[in-house]
C-alpha cells in the first residue's frame, strides 16, 4: 500500500466534481491524512483471505420476466432540470 500523494485533480475529474485551487489543496491534505490512517491495513496479512463483498451470503436472486407498470411521463419529466417535449434536454455532448 502506498503513501503517495493523491492526484486530486485527476480523481476529481473522474468523479466529475469541479474543484477550486483551494479545494484541491484542502482535500488533498485531508485525503492524505485519511490515507495514512487507512494504510494501517497494510499491517494485516490478507494473503490467504477471501474478499467479502457481502456479509450475508446469498445466490441467484432473480426476477420472473414479467412487466410492471411504468411511471407516468409527466411525473418523470416534471423533475427534469430541462426538458423539451417528451425528452430530457442536456447541453451539447462532446465526444470523448
Amino acid at each position: 500500500m502506498s503513501s503517495e500523494k493523491i492526484d486530486v485533480r485527476y480523481v476529481a475529474k473522474l468523479a466529475r466534481i469541479a474543484l477550486t485551487d483551494d479545494e484541491v489543496e484542502r482535500f488533498g491534505a485531508q485525503l492524505g491524512d485519511l490515507l495514512e490512517h487507512v494504510n494501517a491495513l497494510s499491517k494485516l496479512d490478507v494473503s490467504q483471505v477471501a474478499a467479502t463483498a457481502q456479509v450475508v451470503e446469498s445466490r441467484n436472486v432473480e426476477r420472473v420476466d414479467e412487466t410492471r407498470p411504468c411511471l407516468d411521463r409527466e411525473t418523470v419529466l416534471e423533475e427534469a432540470p430541462q426538458r423539451q417535449g417528451g425528452f430530457f434536454r442536456v447541453p451539447r455532448i462532446i465526444a470523448e
Binding site: D65, E66, T67, R68, P69, C70, L71, L77, G86
Partner: peptide
Amino acid sequence: RTASKMFCGCANEFGGEPNTKVCPVCL
C-alpha cells in the same frame, strides 16, 4: 428478447413515445 427490461419490470419493446417505458429503477 424478453418481456421486461434487465433489472426492472418496464416493457422491453422497440420504439414508443420517448420516456414512457421508464420506472424508478431504469431512470
